[in-house]
Design a protein around this nucleic acid. Structure first.
Lengths: 114, 114
DNA sequence: CCATCTGGTTACCGCAACGATACCGACGTT
DNA sequence: AACGTCGGTATCGTTGCGGTAACCAGATGG
């Protein structure tokens, strides 16, 4: 998931910050804990994940819930607003499915022969 | 056009580089010259505009045509691929129309009282 | 008191993007 | 040859995002 060599990285669309769209996708099927988000995002660091989540919380995209169990943990969940971004993300995926080959071809042509 | 205080600047979606979406919109109704793009984009510099256009040309989004008239000039025009981005841009505008108030409200709430 | 689990924060750093300014080069006019 | 226009480059400086590494803090258990 979210491998750097994934062609979708060529996607000319970006939601919010660098990681926002991926986080939304990670949260699509229900709440996730901080540590559970670190795994699929791979190269993200705790700092950047925390910053991004905080910005999303500020913008009303996710909610943050602390659980004082043992061990204590935190869950992040999409709000309706955050969920509404999925429409946009899907539109972007559709664009990629349809047009990314053209883009890749154009880019290969121009890097291939100047 | 494209004023920094425009609420659409809060838009959580970005096409390509910082200026790509605006350039696509500028070219929506037909070819434009380099200098004609500088005006609506305002704070962009010639350097960054040239860089962005070159990247878009490389990716097959725009074509560049030189005219050796007097004075010589250049026209940039959207390709079919570039034009296809308009669908995405429109989707993003729709999202904004529908949800930007919620986002702005959430952000105001969190900056207003901590 | 230390270890461990979780979810961070803090300090620091590097790079790439952005920006300001100056200059360059083709073309035609004068 | 100088000048104006257009479409750029070249150079330099700045800024801020993203990244690394180390440390912090609450809870529990040995």
């Amino acid at each position: 998931m979210f491998a750097p060599e994934c062609p979708s990285r060529m996607m000319p669309l970006q939601i919010g910050d660098k990681w926002t769209a991926m986080i939304v996708i990670c949260l699509e099927r229900g709440p996730r804990r901080f540590g559970e988000l670190l795994v699929p995002l791979r190269s993200i660091t705790k700092k950047v994940l925390a910053e991004t989540l905080r910005a999303m919380e500020r913008d009303g995209m996710v909610t943050r819930t602390e659980y004082r169990a043992n061990p204590p943990h935190v869950e992040y969940e999409l709000t309706a607003l955050g969920r509404s971004l999925l429409t946009l993300i899907d539109a972007s995926r559709d664009w990629c499915r349809e047009h990314l080959p053209e883009l890749a071809e154009a880019r290969a042509r121009s890097t291939g022969n100047g």
